[in-house]
Design a binder for these strands. Structure first.
Lengths: 101, 101
DNA sequence: TGGTAAATATAGGACAGCCTATATATTTAA
DNA sequence: TTAAATATATAGGCTGTCCTATATTTACCA
């Protein structure tokens, strides 16, 4: 089989990062661990940090560096974007979830 | 804003195709319309057909041609793959739905 | 019959999400 | 103070999801 789940299940990393940060501020390693809890696998550094960089560059998150740790949190824009994204996500995939309960 | 929803929300087209086909068999245009109902936008032909081709090549769906229509349905393998994919999906994103109700 | 519409297909390009590998900075431990 | 561990960063490559544009096949209608 070509993909782990039969079909491609990649995607929405940045969405998941925003969602996690809406719960509490975190640094990179904490984000990686939270994703691992959900997906079963930790995104590699080369996957996660470029995504964080991009989200920062477009102004959806901000990071405060203290020592070797950078603590990320949502900006106001990030919060609003996430609201729209969640709505789109639920409209697109909500029934999949409903269906399997 | 770079993306429509602030963060990237692309992805999981093949997953959604499999899920739709688990409800009933459909041809390409019907699949496109069902996706439009959910996402708000119809995938373009150049997006949808290569995805269908790939799913067929890896044996997750089969297509029966009658005239200009090709009716797609899941194979047994496709059904099993979808089951795994749904489980992964719910584990990864289920709380996003829970959260927004 | 001939032309248009509908459904499918393919080419070619952009970009996000994935990886491995390597590098840098900071902290901790020996 | 030096070595190892931790956190972040970057380079380079692959693939799926997106697009536009073009082509092909089949159906339908004038």
């Amino acid at each position: 089989m070509k993909y782990k789940y039969g079909c491609d299940m990649r995607g929405m990393l940045s969405f998941q990062i925003l969602w996690l940060l809406s719960k509490r501020q975190m640094h990179g390693e904490q984000i990686a661990k939270e994703i691992e809890k959900r997906r079963g696998e930790k995104p590699k550094a080369g996957t996660l940090y470029p995504a964080l960089k991009e989200l920062k560059e477009v102004g959806l998150i901000k990071g405060i560096k203290r020592g070797k740790l950078i603590t990320y949190s949502l900006t106001q824009t990030g919060r609003e974007s996430l609201r729209h994204a969640v709505r789109y996500f639920c409209r697109s995939f909500g029934e999949v979830f409903e269906d399997s309960r």
